[in-house]
């Protein structure tokens, strides 16, 4: 307890002594050193820089966001239709239809007929369907069969002439490989029709039928050359 009282007395006495000695601060002769001056100058400059960054960054961020929005708007305006390369076809999608054209593989240039040299037909015409129309030109051979409530339309087209517009608004377009053959399949959402487009190596075929999918695949795989 005596030690604590002594400590307290010393502390109080020491403060008083210091205050007495340095009470008149105006009389302190303070001359900053050159290094101190440099530090102060540096601090002042850095303070200015920080202030500038704070204001400039907000504006810069606003500009970046504006530019990003502008890029989005411009890209949506300038980019054309979406184009898929599927097997040997280009499928160019638009808002409510797609254009399907043939794409010649670079390894097989000009190795296909330039005209309709042989005509393909259905091996077996499904029950209830009868031939309604047929047209053969150098560019394509087309056949239509009708039944009481459906149709079969077979189009055989010279590859370089194939350019078909198909509905993609009321149809679902898928790309399928069935028994090793690539197909573009168009399934209607509003009728019984399903269309298959494929390349058999010689010609491009487009078959639309009001039949179940398996029956259509059977037709696709069993076309025969017309005698």
């Amino acid at each position: 307890m005596n030690e604590n009282i002594l400590k307290q007395a010393l502390l109080e006495t020491a403060d008083d002594m210091i205050l007495k000695q340095y009470s008149d601060c105006e009389n302190i002769d303070f001359i900053p050193t050159n290094s101190f001056k440099k530090k102060i100058d540096k601090l002042c400059k850095n303070y200015d820089k920080v202030s500038f960054k704070l204001t400039y960054t907000r504006a810069r961020k606003a500009i970046v966001i504006f530019v990003a929005v502008l890029v989005i708007m411009l890209s949506s305006l300038t980019v054309g239709a979406v184009r898929d390369a599927i097997a040997n076809f280009f499928v160019t999608h638009f808002s409510n239809h797609a254009d399907v054209t043939y794409k010649e593989p670079s390894t097989k240039s000009n190795q296909y007929p330039k005209t309709i040299e042989k005509v393909y037909e259905l091996k077996t015409v499904p029950k209830g369907f009868s031939l309604a129309d047929c047209s053969i030109t150098d560019a394509s051979a087309d056949t239509i069969y009708f039944s009481d409530d459906g149709q079969i339309v077979l189009q055989q087209v010279v590859k370089e002439k194939f350019n078909e517009s198909i509905d993609n608004e009321n149809s679902i377009i898928t790309y399928e490989t069935i028994n090793g053959q690539d197909y573009i399949v168009q399934t209607s959402k509003i009728s019984k029709d399903i269309s298959f487009i494929w390349d058999n190596g010689e010609y491009v075929f487009s078959l639309t039928a009001s039949l179940d999918k398996d029956s259509i695949i059977d037709i696709c795989e069993n076309l025969r050359i017309k005698k």
């Binding site: 409510n96 030109t137 150098d138 560019a139 087209v157 350019n163 198909i166 509905d167 608004e169």
Partner: peptide, 14 residues
């Protein structure tokens, strides 16, 4: 272009 009643269209020339 509308495809409400049509499935596909193909034009050709030789």
């Amino acid at each position: 272009l509308r495809y409400q009643y049509a499935t596909n269209v193909l034009s050709s020339i030789s």
